[in-house]
Design a protein around this nucleic acid. Structure first.
Lengths: 219, 219
DNA sequence: AGGCTACGATCTACACCGTAGGTATGCAGA
DNA sequence: TCTGCATACCTACGGTGTAGATCGTAGCCT
């Protein structure tokens, strides 16, 4: 009766689906994202997606994996010094988060066990060990570093709700109730900016380095 | 016709609803949480909830506000030293997160602008200023500290999916592909434990202190 | 006492969601 | 040519959040 396109290939693949999903979440946000929306974006029946990805959860996994892969371009030459490696990884990670602020909460929320993620950790910890740092500190470093990165980036990029594009304004404080915060407010001009990130990253790295070389936990 | 209970008060209130929602998310997880489930838990029509809270988003706000309020018991005596204040706040925060692992992602994801949250930041920054630390470092401290706390706790408490109660096992590594990670694995025995938290917290605090007193960002 | 008003609880209905199960189509190898 | 098989589609079901109308009760004012 009606025109049928059932058997004809539509060029779907896990990669193409994931790419379209990334694009759609970037534009419309996580809130409104769904299988049906994605399907109509691809000009395809919703259920067709299930032939390549087995459910919405797996779809979100594919999305986060796709953006995570962006972070380390395959041809990047990594430095030798572990601190420089950590800095490079942090910057790449932040750049990705800035490119995909609506997707980032996915990464921070879900446990990352993909090959790219593990490879990055391996690089970092191997370099730290080569520098003969204390094993304890080396083992702790990834959790401290990426804990901070995830939390900080979540806080500075949180313009989650669907529509408007607020330019990441810092919240304004009532000077009567919170005098110190109000007094410090001018210093938060570059909230979420690159310079701020730099300072905080260095603070965290200093903390890691201190624990790795200085007095071990003389609390 | 059927028994009507329409006019009779059901004892609903924002607080009672929030408390029930906290309890329900604790037990069943965020995934399956919904207005209808909550209503049936309260023995009430779904739409009745809307007379007190204006939508699902506001409901989740109420939930996160409720658990955030737990963190600082009203009668707590706060120390004078800013480091001790930071430690106390961090511990209280972690205790809350451990009590409500299914709820915590809400706190880490949404911007916290409630009165309790701001009051806590005011306490911390005021103490740091009293200690005549550099203003820059004082202004940065909350973001560094809570960035780390949110990210780290998200990572260690992530047993998100609805049903099973996995005891927060660290992931296992393939020794061939990731030799360093595998070698370090034994050190991750207490993954997510109190001792680990202590070490990492001290590392972050050391980083903050270093930036506040030592050489400022001689990068 | 009688009547009015405001409020909270309920009911109905709608658009939308994820996805299980079944069906049709084209292609590769026999 | 016939047979499998992968892939795309269709239908349908139970679930969701919530707008709008309706109903019963409590508390006031005269």
């Amino acid at each position: 009766m009606a025109k049928r396109t059932q058997g004809r290939p539509a060029g779907l693949s896990r990669e193409r689906i994931a790419a379209a999903a990334v694009d759609l979440v970037d534009r419309q946000g996580l809130e409104s994202f769904g299988v049906r929306r994605l399907a109509s974006e691809l000009g395809v029946d919703p259920m067709s997606i299930y032939n390549h990805i087995k459910g919405k959860a797996a779809l979100l996994d594919a999305v986060s994996e796709a953006v995570l892969t962006e972070v380390s371009a395959p041809a990047t030459q990594w430095p030798d010094d572990w601190l420089d490696i950590a800095r490079a990884m942090a910057h790449g990670y932040r750049d990705m988060a800035v490119r995909h602020p609506r997707i980032f909460p996915l990464l921070a929320t879900r446990a990352q066990t993909s090959a790219v993620a593990l490879a990055a950790l391996e690089r970092l910890t191997a370099a730290m060990r080569r520098a003969t740092l204390a094993d304890r500190a080396v083992a702790d470093a990834p959790l401290v570093l990426f804990g901070f990165l995830n939390g900080y980036l979540l806080a500075t990029l949180s313009t989650d709700p669907g529509g408007s594009d607020a330019p990441a304004t810092p919240p304004a404080f009532d000077p009567a109730r919170y005098p110190t915060l109000a007094a410090l407010a001018p210093l938060q001009a570059g909230f979420g900016g690159a310079a701020e990130f730099e300072r905080m990253l260095e603070a965290v790295l200093a903390g890691i380095a201190e624990g790795a070389t200085g007095p071990p936990a003389t609390r």
